[in-house]
Each structure stands twice: as C-alpha cells, then as structure tokens.
C-alpha cells in the first residue's frame, strides 16, 4: 500500500461539522492567506492558461445561468407579489418597482447569485480538485510540465471572479423582468414607466458597490473551492469534506463580504 502522502502541515483538514478550535481557525486562516498570496504571485506571471480559463468561464458562468436565472426570476416574482398587499394598504403600489428593484440590484441579485454559484460551482471545484489531488492527477499534471496551480487554481479563481458579476447582472435583469411580470399580473404598468420608476430612484452610488462586491463574491467562491480541493486529504472522504466545506465556507464568506460591503459603502457615504 502507498506510503502516507503528507498533508501539508500548514493546512489541516477541517470538517465543517465539528466546531473548530480557535488555534485551528487561525492556522487555517494563515494557510488560506498564503494560498491567496500564491494566487497573486503565480496568477499574473506567464505562462497563462487562456484556453483552460475560457473552459472554466464556460463551466462556471454559462452553465450556472439557468440555475441563477430561475432562482432570481422566482425571487423577483415572489417579492413583488408578497409586497403588493402591503403597498396597496399604503396606497403606494407605484413604489413596488423601486422597492423590488433596489432590493434586487443591491442585495438579492448579488446574494442569490453568490449563494447559488457557491452551491453549484464551489462544491464542484472542491470535489473536482479534491479528487484530482487524491487520485494524483495534480501530481501527474506537474510531471507533464504543467504548473497545476496555474492550470487548475488560477484559472478557476479568475473565472469565478469574472463570471459571478456577469451572472449577477443577468440575474438582476431576470429578477426585474419577473418583477415587471408580477406587477402586470395584478395591475398594469408600461415598460417605460417601470424603468423610469426604478432608474429615477437609483444612483451610481447605489449600483456600483453592488456590482463591485460581486467580484469579491466570485473571488471568494473560487478561492475557497480551490483551497479546499487543492488541499484535500487522501481518500474519498477527503473529497467529500473538501466539497462540503467549500460550500459552507464560501456561503458564509459571501454574507461576511456583504456585511463588509455595506460598511465600506457607508464609510464612503454612498448609502
């Protein structure tokens, strides 16, 4: 039987189900910081894996579109229909587009996209890299004259960072479309009035932070998925743990980043 492959000493395996002691948390944090640093050191030096980057963009972005689209469509519709009775009481039905629009563009769109991508892509990255690590495919890559960190990790992190914002923009569009539909189910409004209603209330200060934060969401999803997968321990259980903890941690990270985004926006006087 094979000798025990060394688990890198800096990155112990953590099962998300068990509460982690503080010291483990900090070692994990340090290891992840090191991983991030390596991404920035290696990611922007040749050689660049363009083809693999495109493949990953396709897998992470395009193939997540149906899932993200459906969720944000439902959220837009449900939000509109739920909000309507209250707004009718206040005689403020004309405010529905603004409220739903603001909610979707500022929070729901980014968060839902982030969570869905974390669930779909984060787990698949974690599992894929985990199983590649376990079955020595990562070593094989290195032996084949390929830097696996660049080929596997950098491309995936970059793809997630670039695709999540685009997914979010499309999710916003779908969500607003659903809102428009929801309003027209029980009342009538024209597209022009609807867009004017939303845009009349929006400012750059409200739209841009919402777009900018999605880059960080994507980065976090890619980084955590890759970190967990890349450092998966031997065995099929290690793969499962990598996938699971990638989803758990990146979902949590999305909320934390969202909180930070609110703080930063407030500090810059944008809210």
């Amino acid at each position: 039987m094979p000798p025990v492959l060394p688990t890198p000493p800096c990155c112990p395996l953590i099962s998300p189900a068990t509460p982690m002691p503080a010291s483990t948390f900090f070692t994990e944090f340090r290891a992840m910081t090191g991983f991030t640093g390596r991404f920035f050191r290696e990611g922007f030096r040749p050689r660049y894996e363009w083809l693999e980057l495109l493949n990953q963009c396709y897998a992470i972005g395009y193939q997540s579109l149906p899932l993200v689209g459906i969720t944000s469509f439902i959220m837009g519709l449900v939000l509109t229909l739920r909000l309507r009775p209250t707004m009718v009481q206040f005689g403020a039905t004309s405010w529905i587009p603004v409220m739903v629009g603001l909610t979707i563009i500022q929070e729901l769109g980014p968060i839902i996209t982030g969570l869905m991508v974390a669930g779909k892509v984060g787990s698949s990255i974690g599992a894929e890299l985990g199983s590649m690590r376990v079955s020595e495919q990562i070593d094989a890559m290195e032996v084949s004259g390929t830097n696996p960190f660049k080929y596997l990790v950098v491309t995936r992190i970059l793809a997630a960072t670039l695709m999540v914002p685009i997914l979010t923009l499309l999710a916003d569009a779908v969500g607003l479309g659903a809102c428009y539909l929801g309003i027209n189910l029980q009342g009538v409004t024209s597209v022009a009035l609807f867009t004017n209603n939303i845009l009349g209330r929006l400012t750059f200060g409200e739209v841009l932070p919402a777009v900018v934060k999605t880059f960080f969401f994507g980065f976090a999803i890619g980084l955590i998925g890759c970190y967990k997968g890349y450092h998966a321990s031997k065995g099929t259980q290690g793969v499962g743990v990598a996938a699971n903890s990638a989803v758990v941690l990146s979902s949590l990270m999305i909320f934390l980043l969202d909180l930070v985004a609110v703080g930063v926006s407030t500090a810059f006087g944008l809210i």
Partner: peptide, 12 residues
C-alpha cells in the same frame, strides 16, 4: 522522464 502513477492519474 515518464511517470506511471499507481492510481494512473488519468484526467477524469
């Protein structure tokens, strides 16, 4: 140098 891995390490 060729390396034949124990687990084959074929890219799935």
């Amino acid at each position: 140098v060729g390396f034949l891995f124990q687990s084959n390490a074929l890219y799935d």
